[in-house]
């Protein structure tokens, strides 16, 4: 590697002569060793999935969850250094809470992504800290209906909140991916971790970004997410599949970030395994 031995890679926040921060690039390496994470934004919600490598037979099955809820309507999945991911989640929860304290309303997915992007970026600025060794995928569903303000106990003015444009819709599903540098983009389908290349190739085949919005439904997305994790998985290692989803208030999760029901997950896994086998047969 060209970076080694130059001395420019020995501390965070140092630019090399060609304008790179090597410590951030090394942090990305930590992500690339982690289990694959996938997020899919579809017509009526968001699905998050992660491949959890089983590092020991002594781990309690299905007890160590990797996808976390932030507020009620947001989910976070990440690849890379797991303790760093826990830190990320704690910070995201603090941000969501302080947003509610200030604005008396749940934080939007885009706003959380922005806040967390800023937080991660700050960890690339100083020699006294190191960047986060994770890439996080944030999914959420911002309510499309008019929400009561937190602490509202009466009906309030009959005209509702101001600042509205007639005919303009609000909210909907959101998906963002935040890298160790603090860079973040919105995505139709996002993948990170060891199997990201294969996963991205599969995501690109899905109908997620058409002119009329994504065509894929939530249940289809669950099945695709499971299949993609199986495709991206390196065969000889055992793993657990963890999946969560978020729909609008009229969907199965009623606007909440929840775990995909066991029956649906198992069905998705069955189909994923079958697809794998069919491929081998070809």
């Amino acid at each position: 590697m060209t970076s080694i031995g130059t001395g420019y890679d020995l501390a965070n926040s140092i630019f090399s002569p060609d304008g790179r921060n090597f410590q951030v690039e090394y942090a990305v390496k930590a992500v690339e060793n982690g289990g694959t994470s996938v997020g899919i934004r579809c017509k009526d919600g968001v699905v998050l999935a992660v491949e959890k490598l089983v590092t020991s037979k002594l781990l309690k099955p299905n007890a160590n969850k990797r996808i976390a809820t932030v507020d009620r309507h947001l989910g976070v999945v990440y690849s890379g250094m797991i303790p760093d991911g826990r830190h990320f989640i704690e910070r995201a929860r603090d941000e969501a809470r302080s947003w509610r304290d200030t604005f008396k309303t749940p934080i939007a997915t885009a706003d959380l992504a922005s806040r967390m992007g800023g937080y991660l970026q700050a960890y690339t600025l100083y020699q006294s800290v190191r960047p986060f060794g994770i890439t996080a995928i944030v999914g959420g569903f911002d309510s499309t209906a008019e929400l009561p303000v937190d602490g509202e106990v009466g009906s309030g003015p009959s005209v509702g909140a101001g600042g509205k444009v007639a005919g303009k819709t609000h909210g909907g599903p959101g998906l963002y991916m935040i890298e160790p540098s603090g860079l973040y983009w919105g995505y139709y389908g996002a993948a990170t971790g060891k199997g990201r290349q294969a996963a991205k190739a599969e995501l690109e085949k899905l109908d997620l970004g058409g002119p009329g919005g994504p065509a894929l439904t939530l249940e289809e997305a669950v099945k695709e997410a499971a299949r993609i994790i199986y495709v991206a998985h390196d065969d000889d290692k055992e793993f657990e599949l963890e999946m969560t989803w978020i729909s609008g208030s009229d969907g199965p999760t009623k606007g909440l970030h929840q775990e995909v029901p066991k029956a649906l997950r198992e069905e998705a896994e069955r189909l994923a395994k079958k697809a794998q086998e069919d491929k081998v047969d070809e």
Binding site: A68, L256, Q258, A263
Partner: peptide
Amino acid sequence: YEHDHAETPS
């Protein structure tokens, strides 16, 4: 959060 991972009821 403490009791995260509530499954969506079928």
